[in-house]
Amino acid sequence: MTPPWLSVRRADTPLILAMPHGGTTLPDGLADRFRSPWLARRDADWHIADLYDSLVDATIVSTDVSRSIIDVNRDPSGASLYPGQATTELCPTTTFDGEALYAGESTPDDSEIACRRETWFDPYHDAIAAEIVRLRAKHPRVVLYDCHSIRSRIPRLFDGELPVFNIGTNGGLTCDRSLRDAVEAACSASGQSLVVDGRFRGGWTTRHYAQPAQGLHAIQMELAIRGYLTEPDAVSPDNWPPRFDPALAAPMRATLANILFTCLEFAR
């Protein structure tokens, strides 16, 4: 039985959309341990489900649980995906900006981290793995597309302003070159800034599941939030998160639809 915080919407096409960071739920017993609920939710991939809603016929796996509880796109061993660069942990103790998430000595210890992994991380990835098996039985190639977004300026994580489109393939290891080039071309056609394998090269999801030689191609798309939301220069509880405006997001949705159709064409 699928737990209530986990959503699996099945389709029979060879495309899976994973949404690991769209959730904002702070489960009972954990919410009051954070310095503030706003801080614990601030770094979500805001409105990511609305942004991708009904663009193509694809399987979607998503979690409602905040990434501050556990980040289901991190290496469960605790190893950094970006050695030498600032990042957040499997169970984050700081925000993207380096602010402490927990009050006092209430950060999770190893035992609690293991429990959170069993409760939320493992079921999320079990669901993705099951959908991969189901669709690989129907299609010779499947694309796993990992949906992300982030604030445009976070000095602790990267210099300057992030490009609008950040395509991650871990240096070309997670998908066929033709897929990477086609997605890059779809982004370029928008006229917005883009980079391939820049600051965000793909998280644990893309790196873990990718097996291009066996027909499983994975790609991460990290969007700068200004591409579809009104992003303030500095965020505060008074202005963050911005509301989702369908009219403002329409150009981005049109580009994303082209990207996803490109993924489907490649898989087929």
Results as ranks from 00 to 15, higher is better:
residue 93 T to E: 13
residue 33 R to T: 07
residue 182 A to E: 13
residue 143 V to I: 07
residue 46 W to Q: 05
residue 99 E to K: 07
residue 224 A to K: 07
residue 80 S to V: 03
residue 67 R to M: 04
residue 191 G to E: 09
residue 152 S to H: 12
residue 52 Y to K: 02
residue 66 S to Q: 08
residue 54 S to T: 14
residue 184 E to I: 05
residue 124 Y to A: 03
residue 11 A to M: 04
residue 215 G to T: 02
residue 79 A to M: 12
residue 78 G to C: 10
residue 55 L to K: 13
residue 233 D to G: 09
residue 205 T to I: 15
residue 170 N to P: 02
residue 257 A to G: 10
residue 223 L to T: 07
residue 163 P to E: 06
residue 134 R to H: 08
residue 70 I to H: 06
residue 155 P to I: 10
residue 78 G to H: 06
residue 181 D to S: 11
residue 186 A to D: 15
residue 60 I to E: 10
residue 219 I to E: 07
residue 239 N to W: 11
residue 218 A to L: 01
residue 210 A to K: 08
residue 7 S to E: 15
residue 234 A to K: 13
residue 184 E to F: 08
residue 109 D to V: 03
residue 245 D to S: 05
residue 106 S to P: 03
residue 34 F to K: 00
residue 36 S to E: 02
residue 61 V to W: 12
residue 243 R to C: 03
residue 115 C to V: 08
residue 100 A to E: 10
residue 245 D to T: 06
residue 14 P to E: 07
residue 2 T to S: 04
residue 137 A to F: 05
residue 88 T to Y: 15
residue 53 D to K: 15
residue 102 Y to S: 00
residue 18 A to M: 04
residue 136 R to W: 04
residue 172 G to Y: 13
residue 23 G to K: 14
residue 264 L to W: 15
residue 87 T to W: 14
residue 109 D to M: 05
residue 51 L to E: 01
residue 266 F to R: 03
residue 169 T to P: 13
residue 264 L to I: 08
residue 260 L to G: 04
residue 85 Q to I: 02
residue 168 G to H: 12
residue 211 Q to M: 06
residue 60 I to H: 09
residue 77 S to M: 07
residue 93 T to C: 06
residue 151 R to D: 06
residue 100 A to S: 08
residue 150 I to V: 15
residue 247 A to R: 13
residue 122 D to F: 09
residue 253 R to W: 14
residue 264 L to T: 02
residue 21 H to G: 03
residue 89 E to F: 04
residue 160 G to L: 07
residue 207 R to V: 05
residue 165 F to K: 01
residue 240 W to M: 00
residue 1 M to A: 13
residue 190 S to D: 14
residue 15 L to V: 06
residue 37 P to F: 14
residue 24 T to H: 11
residue 147 C to Y: 11
residue 253 R to V: 02
residue 259 I to S: 03
residue 77 S to C: 08
residue 262 T to Q: 08
residue 39 L to D: 08
residue 29 G to Y: 15
residue 113 I to K: 14
residue 149 S to F: 01
residue 201 R to W: 01
residue 219 I to N: 05
residue 7 S to M: 10
residue 228 Y to N: 01
residue 52 Y to N: 02
residue 56 V to F: 11
residue 180 R to S: 09
residue 96 F to A: 07
residue 120 W to S: 00
residue 39 L to T: 04
residue 29 G to Q: 12
residue 190 S to E: 10
residue 168 G to F: 09
residue 21 H to C: 05
residue 207 R to P: 00
residue 107 T to G: 06
residue 267 A to W: 14
residue 45 D to A: 10
residue 62 S to F: 09
residue 251 P to L: 05
residue 55 L to M: 10
residue 25 T to L: 15
residue 44 A to Y: 15
residue 250 A to S: 11
residue 217 H to G: 04
